[in-house]
Simulated scan of single mutants.
Amino acid sequence: MPLIRCLGPIRLPSSYRQYMRVEAAHLKRRNAFDCHLQFDQELLPDPSYEDYEHLISRTHHFRNGEVVQVAKPLVCQRLTKQLAAFYGGRQHHLVMASVEMPVHTDQRDDQINSTVLLIPYQASHLHFLQVEDERRQLLPNRIYAFNHYREHALVYDCEFGSSSSSKPLSVLKVRFDRMAKNSRTNTQGTAS
């Protein structure tokens, strides 16, 4: 069985696409100052959670003293229903921007399913997802599934490496709460 599975095409909501463009631009701008490319990840607010209001915006601080506040889109219920066809459990939508990410494993959490979905919005032909010894080019508007508790990396496959001029990847990462045995699929639970 492959370590990285492509589950087919999908179109992200326009509110997600707009936010991802803005976040990729802010990451690129920060990296122009720092010359050190890192990833950025933000959880989108879900109105079905209590106290979701503290997640509705984020603030960027730049070295020149400029502060920019950006409104985040709410979790799209239409997209949540589409993705529920693949995996059950409450969904957490995280927007990520990065050029590359070294090999790592995500911290184990017994409440989170081991399989995550990645849906690239913007990617260059140099972006690859690597899970253990398997590597796959990331194409925009495709759903990729993999076990995030295995060693994985985001590879920018350029002979000169990455720089502040490298194109960042914009991707939606979807995590699923692990469902209790014998329970029905629940994509609209309440916050604990």
Rank of each mutant, 00 (worst) to 15 (best):
L94A: 04
L44G: 05
R21Q: 12
C76L: 05
R5Q: 14
S165K: 08
D106P: 00
L74M: 12
I4L: 07
A32M: 11
H93R: 03
A85H: 15
H54W: 15
A153F: 06
N141D: 12
L94Q: 10
Q137F: 03
R78G: 12
D34Y: 11
L139I: 08
H104N: 06
Q188C: 13
R5L: 11
V103R: 15
V171C: 01
H36A: 14
P47F: 05
D34E: 14
V155I: 13
P2H: 11
R30C: 08
D40C: 09
P102M: 05
R29V: 02
E53Q: 12
L27R: 00
F128W: 06
E159L: 13
V68A: 07
R63N: 12
C158A: 14
R21P: 01
K173E: 08
E100N: 09
K167R: 05
E134W: 09
R178P: 04
G65R: 08
H36V: 07
T187S: 10
A84Q: 13
S14G: 08
R21K: 15
S183N: 10
R29I: 01
F33R: 11
K81H: 15
P168A: 02
T185R: 15
E66C: 09
T115S: 10
L117P: 00
R11G: 08
M179A: 06
V171D: 02
Y156D: 01
H152T: 03
S183F: 07
L138A: 02
D109K: 08
P2G: 11
